[in-house]
Design a protein around this nucleic acid. Structure first.
Lengths: 107, 107
DNA sequence: TATAATTGGTTACATAAAGTAACTAAAGAA
DNA sequence: TTCTTTAGTTACTTTATGTAACCAATTATA
């Protein structure tokens, strides 16, 4: 009769980061607004999945999408305050990786 | 001709956390050594996946497995120093979740 | 007037990962 | 001998991801 459970908010947050690519997208957007094709190039994600992930992040209020009707069209993705406030999380992952990830094993 | 890339160590670290269940397992083990069946109960993961994840975490030096030949057998999983040093990451995820995750949407 | 070029996607299909539930090994207890 | 308990494994289904070709909008070019 053990009723111990994991905090639902924590679970929700970690399920966000547990989705493949999502962490990398947020990390990359910490550097500032970027367009779709730049994200595919830098992250190495396919258009199909990037599109899906960005829609998701937008729906969760983590990213905004802005259309600039130039030629050719320019669309920029940018973190919201909610998204940007994940920076401390990313910083700690960065710190840990510098100490514990063996660069020879990053294949 | 843009050679910008994401730090390979960061990428390696986030790919660890991007694997489903891995973050929750580490978070749960921060509370101390725990046995297999307790982890399945608390986390809500199947034996198949828990087994796979724990083998993986052991291979990466994040978790240790200790057999106590009692009756019935008791096997405990515990974080190594490398694993425990992910605590600041988990703490920041926790912080973020308290501020930004709407408890009504944690379904 | 076609034709091409560029961005930001979508579609269709193959492969890999995760979910589910039944099953097994070991070892002492009844 | 049969039962219980823990810690898994196996076989099978469903979901997620990878890959590559395709499309719409818009302006420049032949």
């Amino acid at each position: 009769m053990d009723t111990a459970v994991i905090c639902p908010r924590f679970e929700s947050a970690i399920s966000l980061l547990s989705q493949r690519w999502t962490g990398l997208i947020i990390y990359q957007l910490l550097a500032g607004p970027q367009r779709f094709s730049h994200l595919t190039d830098v992250i190495g994600i396919s258009g199909r999945l990037l599109s899906e992930r960005l829609k998701n992040l937008e729906a969760q209020g983590i990213v905004t999408r802005t259309v600039y009707p130039e030629t050719p069209v320019r669309i920029e993705y940018e973190l919201t305050e909610k998204g940007f406030s994940l920076k401390p999380v990313m910083d700690e992952i960065q710190n840990w990786s510098q100490v514990w990830v063996d660069p020879l094993e990053t294949k």
